[in-house]
Design a protein around this nucleic acid. Sequence first.
DNA 1: TTCCAGGGGTAGA
DNA 2: TCTACCCATGGA
Length: 291
Amino acid sequence: MEIELPTPTPYDFAGSVKGHGWYQLAPFRWDESLRQLERVERLDDGRVVLLRLTGRPGAVRVTVETGQPLTPTGIETIGRRVHWMLKLNEDLGPFYEVVRPHPQIWARVGGGGGRLLRCPTLFEDTVKTICTTNTTWRMTIDMVGRLVERLGDPLPEDPARRAFPTAAQVAAADPALFSTEIRLGYRSDYVRQLAREVVDGTRTLEALRASGRPAAELRKALLSIKGVGEYAANNLLMILGAYGQLPVDSEFRAFVGGKYFDGQAPTVREMTAVYEAFGEWKFLAYWFDAG
DNA sequence: TTCCAGGGGTAGA
DNA sequence: TCTACCCATGGA
């Protein structure tokens, strides 16, 4: 069956999805020939379905591969999650205005990009962000792939493809599995602790997705997660739609140092000052400045 | 062998 | 607030 979600104007489906590496992490998969984003998704009732997303004029089409018809609740759930993942609710108009005078950045986002892909739950985005710290992107892809492969629910029609594990599934997993199979390194303890906190209710992670919360409040909550520091918190603020903080990591240092400081070793304060004029849109300005 | 990759926690100042 | 040191993992 199919669901059509109206999109803002301008909107570039592929540009937005591929503007960030998240589309390369399981259970997302990008089909370049079809320009289609796929994702195995576990619904609240435990059913596992395959979503195929494609850009249409004025809309995103969601094709749901499923043996049995979806319930109205299931359809509503999928629509809501896809809407969240694609950030279709955000008003990027002010961002476009701020970067319009910058030809290089404007060329990369002016046609409707900038709605960087996120996951249906903040739990998944947080786990993935932790898996980007102190490692290479290649290893992040592998770590997330193993997490999904070992703990996620299989798609009935193709059991090799799986959904992202729920917090309950991560919390209930045998700890030995992490060291022998999933191999997140020291990140395993952070991920498992977060999953336990979510399951036992001591951390109401998904509540942070509610709109209207001040960025400072979100930031404080995110930094209280073990394994989430400055870089990870600012990356998650971006995920949540707050773009006023920069993700200062080795990539940021290399890019800003190379482009604006002739390869010298500026301080973090000097580097972040480069994007000061972009105000509440610093993250996206940096992101598309870097390419 | 050593270094380090899209860092972060902790102890000690 | 700042620094030194440690942390699993795997590639260079």
